[in-house]
Amino acid sequence: MENGVAEKQSSYTYWVRDDAAPLPVPRKLTPEDISQQSQPNLLGSVWNQAGTWEEKNLNSWANSRIKELLSSLSLEFSNGKAAVYEVTKCSGDAFLITVRNKKRVGYTYELSLKFKGEWSTNDQKEKIKGHFDIPEFSFGELDDLQIETRISSEISKEDKARISKDLQSFLEPIRKKLAAFEQELKDR
């Protein structure tokens, strides 16, 4: 039996060490400890510190902001003046995406704007009203913006064609307002 006890004492125990360091004792961090730690400038939510995919819906803000920007648009042209007084259709999506700790924004919208104004022909002023339709516009594509004009006033076809041509001058102010919207979206 003495041989059996001697064998157990001399068995191979390389991975079991008696001189191993003691386990660290946990302690509560103080506010000073936390302030000394470097904190990276992260985008997005606190839970997403790795900077993986995170998408935020901005539709309600974007809808109200587009309506606010475009509802007070007015313009004078060669034979009259007109003003947008209501945004009747504002449908689409706006979003903020954080991916790999980089912010990306985007949107796609369709608009319909009501306008009213006056147009003069041969010393005669006529009230005009109608709609501007913007079939589709999206982030970074404002240079391709197009508006379609529908005049609902009772006037001749020739006058409607001339008025529609004059009303195309609304394109540039609309484009500027939407560019301001796009910049605000980027800054969010």
Rank of each mutant, 00 (worst) to 15 (best):
M1E: 10
E2A: 09
N3H: 14
G4N: 07
V5I: 09
V5Y: 08
V5K: 14
A6Y: 05
E7Y: 02
K8S: 13
Q9W: 12
S10T: 01
S11Y: 00
S11L: 09
Y12T: 07
W15S: 11
W15I: 11
R17L: 09
A20L: 13
A20R: 15
A20D: 11
A21I: 05
L23S: 14
P24N: 09
V25I: 13
V25W: 00
R27N: 13
K28T: 11
T30K: 14
D33C: 11
D33I: 06
I34G: 04
S35G: 02
Q36W: 00
P40L: 14
L43E: 06
V46Q: 13
V46K: 11
W47I: 01
W47D: 04
Q49K: 11
G51R: 12
E54V: 06
K56L: 03
K56Y: 08
K56H: 10
L58F: 04
S60F: 04
R65T: 03
L69E: 10
L70S: 04
S71P: 03
F77S: 10
V84P: 03
Y85C: 02
E86S: 15
V87P: 01
T88H: 02
K89G: 01
C90E: 07
G92Y: 02
D93L: 11
A94N: 03
L96D: 00
I97P: 04
T98G: 09
V99G: 02
R100Y: 10
R100S: 14
N101Y: 03
K102C: 01
K103F: 05
R104Y: 13
G106M: 09
T108V: 08
Y109W: 13
L111S: 00
L111P: 01
S112L: 01
S112T: 08
L113D: 04
K114W: 02
F115Q: 05
K116P: 00
W119V: 01
S120W: 07
S120R: 15
S120T: 15
D123I: 01
Q124M: 12
K125Q: 15
K129R: 05
K129A: 12
G130C: 10
F132G: 11
D133H: 12
I134K: 02
E136D: 08
F137L: 09
G140T: 07
L142N: 07
L142Q: 08
D143E: 14
D143A: 11
L145H: 07
T149P: 03
R150L: 13
R150E: 15
S152H: 11
S153G: 05
S156G: 14
K157G: 02
E158T: 12
K160I: 03
R162Q: 13
I163P: 03
D166N: 13
D166K: 05
L167I: 04
L167H: 04
Q168C: 05
E172N: 12
E172P: 01
I174R: 02
I174M: 10
R175N: 10
K176T: 09
K177L: 13
L178F: 04
A180D: 14
F181W: 06
F181L: 07
F181M: 08
Q183A: 14
R188N: 06
